[in-house]
Design a protein around this nucleic acid. Structure first.
Length: 434
RNA sequence: GCCGGGGUGUGGUAGAGGCUAUCCCUGGGGACUGUGGAUCCCUAGACCCGGGUUCGAAUCCCGGCCCCGGCCCCA
């Protein structure tokens, strides 16, 4: 009987893995050069870590279970909460800001769709200890540069939930209602927002101001809003946002100001941003990154430290990441022992020794099926190898090997030493050992 | 949770109630134990699962599973 893959999961074949590894390497590389260090948390956690953050309702969207010790556990549905937990448990004493990144699989029990799976990967970073504009700008610039390293065309929208919250407070809306409104804004339900405000007896011109703020887009939105007195001149959020945008210019980051981004979660406190695929390849799921400044640590029993972070949907990036076929094609070498019918082991011994040397710097095959010479070459061809190193008794007699270029068919006899040098040069190995 | 379209060897397919299920690609072996990509031969390998209708089901019906896409959601 044939066993099917679990719903919403995928197998990654070598070609896909090569692509994903290239992406991972580039993303890690950028993060490292920006001074972030990789961390890793467990694949499963106590379920309450996630319900505390997102409410009991998300239990039905998680893979949660009881272990044999009756602990209530869950496969992680995201990585922010685990990272904060790790920080509170064991990173508290590190110098601030603490800059970390992560890459890991997450699990959600949802209906699979385009670029949406039950097991998916997130790549994200957290700045622990700062939500100042300097930190916000660096974080956004980092996300921007990671996308650049992947050659992905994307659109960055930056907002600030503080502006809207301030506006609502000015309108005498209480905190509980503010959170409700933020959630509605995030869902784009304007009508519901208006109704709720009417119920709360908010004056009509204040409602208009709010709606106007939500619609603000583009570089000049801030000046316009201030010009029309929608934002108070002494607004803290405004000052923070202006500074952030200034810094983004220094970083050379292109952005669209979008005050309508609300991220309907209570713990977002300041800057928020989202990045969308600009190529239209993702259908309905076109958001590839989300982040912002938030306060979450106190919820998990830590000090209420400011946090700024983002997470990329790695699978969505993989969907739109284009890579040269050349980069994906694995080019290696095959060592071909030519055995005679007496099954003389000296040829095999020599071949293995040569393969071991080549394996220090290039993918190397050697026959595992006791095949004939021509069958070995046929296999090498099917595997897109570049060179064959032929080792037979003729070569052994002369202490030589035959190096055959599988692209051109040219071949020539040479010593093992010359062969190694030649292949090192071809595969661009620098820093010859002495 | 809801809606639409699908599921035949590794992959891609033909087949529309009736012979041993078509063809291409693929895997293994051989022609060919010192030179590959061609050709030929042999060989491996499939009707998603369960039930129903029928003399007879890959084909029609029902349920499930899975895939693709959309809604909801997206921490």
């Amino acid at each position: 009987m044939r066993i099917e893959r679990a719903r919403g999961t995928r197998d990654f074949l070598p070609a896909e893995m090569r692509k994903r590894k290239i992406m991972e390497e580039r993303m890690r590389d950028v993060a490292e050069r920006w001074g972030y260090e990789e961390i890793r948390t467990p694949t499963f956690e106590r379920a309450e870590l996630f319900t505390l953050k997102s409410g009991e309702a998300i239990l039905k969207e998680m893979y949660e279970f009881r272990d044999k010790g009756d602990r209530h556990l869950a496969l992680r549905p995201e990585l922010t909460a685990p990272v904060i937990r790790m920080y509170i448990n064991e990173l508290k004493m590190t110098p601030k800001p603490t800059k970390v990144y992560y890459f890991g699989n997450c699990f959600r029990y949802e209906e699979p769709q385009k670029a949406r799976y039950r097991e998916f990967w997130q790549f994200g970073t957290e700045i622990i200890g700062s939500d100042r504009p300097e930190a916000q700008a660096e974080l956004i610039a980092l996300a921007f540069n990671i996308l650049k390293s992947l050659g992905v065309k994307a659109e960055l929208h930056v907002g600030h939930v503080g502006l809207i919250r301030e506006r609502l407070r000015a309108a005498q809306v209480d905190e509980a209602h503010i959170n409700t409104v933020m959630r509605l804004i995030d869902k784009g339900e304007r009508q519901a927002v208006i109704e709720l405000m009417n119920e709360a007896d908010v004056k009509k011109d204040l409602i208009d101001d709010l709606l106007c703020l939500l619609d603000s887009k583009g570089k000049n939105a801030l000046q316009e809003a201030r010009g029309r007195n929608i934002i108070a001149a002494d607004s803290d959020a405004l000052r923070e946002l202006e500074l952030l945008l200034e810094y983004l210019d220094y970083y050379g980051v292109d952005y669209t100001l979008n005050l309508g981004i609300a991220r309907g979660l209570d713990y977002y406190t300041g800057m928020v941003f989202e990045i969308y695929d600009a190529g239209g390849m993702l259908g309905a799921q076109n958001q590839i990154c989300g982040g912002g400044s938030y306060r979450l640590a106190a919820l998990f029993g830590g000090e209420d430290i400011p946090l700024t972070g983002f997470a990329f949907g790695f699978d969505r990036l993989a969907e739109i990441f284009g890579v040269d076929d050349k980069d994906l094609e694995r080019r290696g070498v095959v060592v071909v022992p030519i055995r005679d019918k007496e099954a003389d082991l000296t040829v095999t011994k020599e071949a293995i020794e040569i393969a071991s040397r080549l394996r220090e710097f290039v993918p190397t095959h050697i026959d595992l099926m006791n095949r004939s010479l021509s069958a070995q070459l046929k296999y090498a061809n099917a595997c897109h190898d570049s060179f064959a190193v032929l080792v037979g008794k003729n070569e052994l007699k002369e202490s030589n090997v035959t190096l055959r270029n599988l692209d051109t068919g040219e071949q020539e006899k040479m010593s093992v030493e010359d062969c190694v040098v030649r292949l090192k040069a071809y595969f661009g190995v620098i820093g010859e050992e002495k």
